[in-house]
């Protein structure tokens, strides 16, 4: 983007948006994103159609089949309640993705609001970012555990706790982008043309701050899934018998030698989900970051 002195290049905004579209189009053809997309897409489909795909009711007990090894009927085996682990993993994946999605949406909205205001309104920057720094200095999982302990174990409380944990990092990334973008010539040009602050932010700054935010949110998504699993593993996730990948592993840890499939199968599901998201995130970063795109 170039501009002759005193002649602002307002078309630069459109160029950025076009670049974003181009980037996303390129992303769709990126090998990592394709691989990650297939992996993650498969898991998303499982989660969406869990009720149709799961062979059994995930909470249906069967005391005549406690800790049964994987076989033709129970492909992933059964747990200490005689419940079908495949069905629980499928439904647990749905819950993990739901928590991840809630956190991504909430973190994205809050992060954009806080990051934009602190980046654009200079006097807000110091005090608000010091609060964000304070939150960032607190260990994320510990904060989530404390919140879940105070508010009680549930899906929504786990999502809330993780949102509070991840919002400061997202806000900081958005703020960083806004700090750079607000000094751009096309923003100066928009100001010179009499554009309102709202228009400048919504039309010229935010669209250009999206690429790093998208990459960050894929990271938040995968870390939220892991964090939810940790919270559930520690007993501060959704209450029993609701299946979540973390609490299935927690239930299986007592039988790790006698019935390893109980903990192993949800562990594999977590690994696949996070791996898929991370590969997508890497691909997005490669395609959306101009410094990496040509490497």
């Amino acid at each position: 983007m170039t501009a002759e002195a005193g002649v602002p290049d307002i078309s630069a905004t459109r160029a950025w948006v076009a670049r974003l579209k181009l980037g996303l189009g390129t992303a769709a053809r990126h090998r990592s994103i394709q691989v990650g997309g297939v992996l993650f897409g498969f898991i998303v489909l499982l989660a969406i159609f869990a009720d149709l795909i799961a062979p059994f009711d995930p909470n249906k007990n069967n005391f005549r089949a406690l800790l049964s090894a994987p076989d033709a009927v129970n492909i992933f085996g059964t747990d200490a309640f005689g419940r079908d682990i495949l069905s629980r993993v499928i439904h647990g994946t749905r819950l993990s993705l739901l928590v991840g999605l809630l956190v991504v949406v909430a973190t994205g909205i809050l992060g954009v609001i806080v990051g934009t205001f602190t980046g654009y309104v200079r006097w807000l920057d110091g005090p608000v970012m010091r609060v964000m720094d304070g939150l960032m200095a607190f260990p994320g999982i510990l904060l989530a555990i404390a919140l879940a302990a105070v508010l009680g174990p549930s899906v929504s409380n786990a999502a809330l706790a993780l949102t509070i944990t991840f919002t400061p990092r997202t806000a900081r990334i958005v703020r960083g982008s806004v700090l750079v973008l607000r000094e751009m010539p096309y923003v100066e040009a928009a100001k010179a043309c009499g554009a309102s602050h709202a228009r400048i932010v919504l039309k010229h700054i935010l669209p250009n701050a999206l690429p790093p935010l998208i990459v960050q949110l894929t990271f938040v998504f995968s870390v939220s899934i892991l964090a939810e699993a940790v919270l559930s593993f520690m007993g501060v996730g959704p209450p029993p018998p609701t299946p979540s990948l973390g609490n299935i592993i927690a239930e299986g840890r007592s039988y790790i030698q006698e019935a390893p499939w109980v903990a192993l199968m949800p562990g594999i599901a977590i690994a696949m989900t996070v791996l898929g998201l991370n590969i997508i995130g890497d691909g997005l970063r490669d395609t959306l970051d101009p410094r990496l795109r040509n490497l």
């Binding site: 909470n59 249906k60 007990n61 309640f81 174990p153 007993g235 209450p239 029993p240 018998p241």
Partner: peptide
């Protein structure tokens, strides 16, 4: 507690496990 909750739901009791 988990098994009891599952046994009570079919008769219409809104059983919730508080662990």
């Amino acid at each position: 507690a988990v098994v009891l909750a599952e046994q009570l739901k079919p008769i219409g009791i809104n059983a919730v496990v508080k662990q």
